[in-house]
Design a binder for these strands. Structure first.
Lengths: 215, 215
DNA sequence: CGTGCTCTTGAGTCAAATCAATTATTGTGG
DNA sequence: CCACAATAATTGATTTGACTCAAGAGCACG
């Protein structure tokens, strides 16, 4: 429907490319600074606008009536989040660290803007990828795909993935438990596919093998 | 972002409401008739247009590089399918029974049409719901949610769900095996929440309890 | 009225969940 | 700056829900 998207990367969400073209738009707000663990919006808030991450990291999640949580995504610098249906938001958006975001007011006609449409379709593609992960992959494949996805979103092209989110956040994103995530990371280390630098940073030693695992 | 969507129903995709307003549009093609198991589009085909089911049922699925399959959705009369990112389709669409579909040509500007936008956001919401199912629910909850979702899409308001898809299709939709689906259906019968009429039709005896299970 | 599907059912296995410590890390006040 | 509390992550032991493998049963169709 729109421009072609690279497919080597399983979890790229929405790049900054489109965003640049919006600078100067009257509907693009200034940068809002958030402390760690700050709520950007909650379930029940009015939906409609979207947000662009300037720096830092945002976690978007959804709670089921039974209290189970699904983390629908993590968004880093240059990425867009907040696309939602209906009048009310069904998700919570919270910062995981000191972050800056800009709000972009949207109305129906903005969807005709190719930049906005690209963002929306990029988001659609990312959910589809997430579905594929949750529907077909085992724990080690899920974690491998996750790490590659995070690393791919770094602005520098380095083989590192910074993890501002907890093991529990990762688990709730991948439909696993935090213990299983921890064990999968351990196994990837034993397989010499990654190295841990502390608990919150990983170096991808064999990206190809990781992509193959998580494909 | 757009109009409010009912939330009692976990798997409604895109209703026929929007479609009616498009009758007369030059871009809406005539009805194409398909035999059972006919391919409507394949991975690699050019993306861009969407389809409306007139009657029958369409299965949309995606195959991973390792050959695993995810059925992303089933579409019945009045529903829209075929929203995809990028130049090439990543999914296969096939009829499960004798069906009729109409193609709707889309270009970027059509997204500004509220009817089209509603369809797109309805689709977005349905994927989100599917994610929630795959990310948080166990086998019996998944099957319960699935059956309620199918029943909700009947035009008559009856508590029946017709299942033109096989157990294997359901399994690949829910991230389970066909045996597990069969056992879950059996357990729902024992719990007196459903009755089977043959293998391909179920009557929902306690929709509330089913929704609670699958919520 | 077979023949081939699909679906069901059973038995055994295995991957991930659960339960339970233990070991980093991080943060705080003395 | 260090001791200590609090939080997060790892690791181990055990359980369990879903998968796998393997027969049968039910149905649809020629």
């Amino acid at each position: 429907m729109l421009m072609h998207k690279e497919f080597s990367n399983p979890t790229t969400i929405v790049g900054a490319a489109g965003y640049l073209g919006l600078i100067g738009s009257t509907k693009l707000g200034g940068t809002t600074r958030h402390r760690e663990k700050e709520l950007i919006y909650a379930q029940g808030d009015e939906a409609g606008d979207i947000y662009i991450v300037e720096y830092g990291c945002v976690r978007v999640s959804r709670i089921t009536p039974e209290g189970r949580r699904l983390v629908t995504g993590f968004y880093f610098a240059g990425q867009v989040f907040g696309f939602e249906t209906g009048g009310e938001r069904q998700c919570y958006a919270e910062t995981l660290e000191y972050s800056g975001t800009r709000r972009l007011q949207l109305d129906d006609r903005d969807l005709a803007n190719p930049l906005i449409a690209e963002m929306l379709f990029g988001y659609l593609e990312s959910i589809h990828q997430h579905l594929l992960v949750l529907g077909t992959q085992n724990s080690i494949e899920r974690v491998a795909a996750f790490l590659v996805g995070i690393a791919d979103r770094r602005e520098d092209g380095s083989n590192k993935a910074r993890l501002p989110m907890s093991r529990c956040d990762i688990a709730d994103h991948l439909g696993l438990t935090l213990e299983t995530v921890s064990r999968a990371i351990h196994r990837l280390q034993v397989l010499k596919l990654i190295t841990l630098v502390g608990a919150r940073e990983v170096i991808l030693l064999d990206r190809t093998a990781l992509i193959e695992l998580g494909a």
